[in-house]
Design a protein around this nucleic acid. Structure first.
Lengths: 206, 206
DNA sequence: TAGATTGTTAATCGATTAACAATC
DNA sequence: TAGATTGTTAATCGATTAACAATC
């Protein structure tokens, strides 16, 4: 069932399916079809069926997919049935907003450590956590066995900080700094840079 | 030169190229090659050359690309030689952080209007702008001829608010709400949902 | 000139879609 | 049963890569 190698582009769509299914649940729906899901997401029904079939058979001919069951299977596949502890590095405006964001927990992630290198910020309380000195970051992350980190430092620091995160055992980095970082291929990186998205759209505006 | 129809996936890489070139400029570099650019970005040199060739001939055999020239061409292609006025709807924690973010202006975008529907927030000053009542949003955006918007409202409001933005003449929406919205195909939408990226990575973590 | 690197072509590779038998 | 929808196959479509002549 866990096909040896699923294309990453397929993996990238699973969270989208899960998000839509969660939304349907809050709407009180209990069953859906590949067609209905596809219309919501702007994806063809064939693609959704093909993607899901990489992992098993989750539907029933004639009726479609039971939403709670499929959502649960997707959580299992994406490994978010339990909650990942996440470290956040860089507590400027953006880092603060990320730290306050309430939408992580019910989707599998919980920020449990904040680091900054600004002496004026160290010791400050954000929610129920205290900003720690990033000098202690490597040993701290390692001893707590944190494997996921968010990077909200200036672009000029991103490469160096990511190297230290990796040294500490981090294997997945969500990078908010507007820069590309180079990591060993055992480590996963994803980027969030709003300007890239804006530029991609304004290309099309007369 | 402006090839009638360039694949969107190519358009999506241009901002990445521009970002890397800007970075090289701050490093004092003046010339680069498709190979060097590719190493920074984790993209093959052939792909970079192919992508650029969709828009013209910007390099010189034997020497590569003049960074200021290529960056300027990309800015022209992406339409960020002048600055786009942007409306921001929803001024919660996330919206505030977006409003404070200093990195938009030198990359082609400037937030010039903030809207919220919470009476306690309306009138509040954020930087040099005042939060306006979203009841006035449609006429306000239309009269100011704003064509780009960022959406930082709750997921449950995103569809309805985006409809009003479109009614006001907005043609590009950057959606921070964790939901998909349905828009006419004359309108462009891009999404930012950090959890999608995290889930895509934790799939691979044992 | 010799070395380097572009722009482009053709070949390869991979992803999406259409279609349908199976079956609920 | 009849209608609906899955899972899967084969066909199509599109994107990436390899290779190289052109040329700076």
């Amino acid at each position: 069932m866990p096909a040896s190698s699923v294309p990453d582009i397929v993996v990238g769509r699973l969270p989208l399916y899960l998000r839509a299914l969660s939304q349907m649940t809050t709407e009180g729906k209990e069953v859906t079809s590949s067609q209905e899901l596809g219309e919501r997401l702007g994806i063809s029904s064939a693609q959704i069926r093909k993607d899901l079939s990489q992992f098993g058979e989750f539907g029933k001919q004639g009726t479609g997919y039971a939403i709670p069951f499929l959502a649960d299977q997707l959580r299992r596949i994406l490994r978010v049935k339990s909650i990942w502890d996440v470290a956040l590095v860089g507590v400027g405006d953006l880092g603060r907003a990320v730290a306050h964001y309430a939408g992580f927990v019910d989707r599998g992630y919980r920020i449990v450590a904040l680091y900054d290198n600004d002496p004026r910020k160290i010791g400050e309380q954000i929610g129920s956590f205290t900003i720690m000195d990033s000098a202690t970051m490597v040993s701290n992350i390692r001893s707590r066995e944190i494997h996921v980190a968010m990077l909200a430092v200036p672009a000029s620091d991103a490469q160096q900080v990511s190297a230290r995160l990796i040294e500490a055992g981090v294997r997945a980095i969500l990078c908010y700094a507007p820069t590309s970082i180079v990591v060993p291929d055992t480590v996963h990186v994803q980027y969030i840079d709003p300007v890239l998205h804006l530029q991609r759209m304004t290309y099309y505006l007369g």
